[in-house]
Design a binder for these strands. Structure first.
Lengths: 143, 143
DNA sequence: AATAGATGTATGATATATCATGAAGGTTGC
DNA sequence: GCAACCTTCATGATATATCATACATCTATT
C-alpha cells in the first residue's frame, strides 16, 4: 500500500500544507505565491546574496531563483540596482510594496503553522525535525 | 532562522529525497521520472481507475495525471483502449516495456528507501508517519 | 425522449523544478 | 597583460502543479 510508505506520507503532508497555506494567502487577497514570499523574505533579511546563495537557503536551484526574482521585480516587490564593483551582480532591495506584502503575509504564515501543528507537542515537532534532518543527510551525497 | 521552521525541514527532506531517488534512477540508465513511475505503478495495480481516482492515490490533481498519462502513452509504457460501455474513458494497460521499467526500478526504490531511512528505528518511522498524518489532517478542510 | 446535471478527459495559462548551456564579467597564474 | 578558469546570471527545454474551462458523454428526472 502506498499509504504505508513513509515518503508518500511526507509528500502528502507537505503538499497539503502548501495548498492550505497558499489558499489562506489567496483568501486574504494577497497576490503572492509561497515560493515568491520565501525568496522575498530571504532577500529582505540579507540583501547581498547571490542567486545561488539564495537558492541554498530556500532549497531551490539558481534557475528557479532567477525566475522568481524576475517575477518579483516585474511586480515591483523588488528592485535591482547595478553594483559598481561587480558587473555580473545587482543589489536587490525589497520595495515598500514588497514590505507591505511581507507584513500582510506574516500573521497568516504564523496562523498556518499553528493550525498545521495543532495537537503536536514541542517534543513531537523537535523529534520530527530531527528525523527529517537525518533523512536529508542520508540522501545527501558526501563530498 | 528558516532552519528552525518545521515546514522548511519538511520541504528540504522531501526535496532531497526526490533528487536522490531520481539521480539513482537516472544513474541506472532508466528513462522515467519518479512521478511517472508512481502513476504507472498505480495503474498496474488497478487498471480501472479514473484520472481523478489515480490523482487521489498519488496526491496529484487530475490535470497532472492526464499529462503524465499522455507522456507514458507516448513513450509506449502504457496503452489506452476504448471502453465500450463509457465513451469518455479508456482502459489503461501497462505494456511489456512499461512492466520492464517497473521491474527495473523496483530494486532501486527499495534501496533508496533503505538508504534514506538509515539510522531510523521502526518506532521512529512509525512516529514520523503518525505525525505527518496529523499535519495532513490539520491542513485538510473539513467537509 | 428531451433536458439538466454530473462525470471524465483534455488543454490553456501561469508558476516552479531541473538540467544544460550561453554570455558576460571577474580572478589567478604565468 | 593575457590566457585559462571560475562565478554570476539568463534562458531554452522538458516535467510537474494548479486553476479554470471546454467538450464529450453519461445519468437521472420528468
Amino acid at each position: 500500500m502506498l499509504s504505508n510508505i513513509l515518503f508518500y506520507s511526507l509528500d502528502k503532508a507537505i503538499k497539503q500544507y502548501r495548498r492550505f497555506a497558499q489558499a489562506n494567502i489567496d483568501r486574504a487577497g494577497i497576490a503572492i505565491t509561497i515560493d515568491q514570499w520565501l525568496v522575498l523574505r530571504v532577500i529582505l533579511e540579507n540583501d547581498d546574496l547571490t542567486q545561488t546563495e539564495i537558492g541554498d537557503r530556500v532549497f531551490k536551484d539558481q534557475a528557479s531563483v532567477a525566475r522568481i526574482i524576475r517575477l518579483l521585480t516585474e511586480r515591483s516587490l523588488l528592485v535591482a540596482e547595478a553594483l559598481p564593483h561587480d558587473g555580473r551582480r545587482t543589489q536587490l532591495r525589497v520595495t515598500a510594496e514588497g514590505q507591505r506584502i511581507l507584513d500582510a503575509v506574516h500573521p497568516i504564515v504564523l496562523s498556518n503553522r499553528q493550525i498545521a501543528l495543532r495537537g503536536l507537542s514541542e517534543e513531537d515537532t523537535a523529534q520530527l525535525q530531527q528525523l527529517l534532518e537525518r533523512i536529508y543527510l542520508n540522501c545527501t551525497p558526501q563530498p
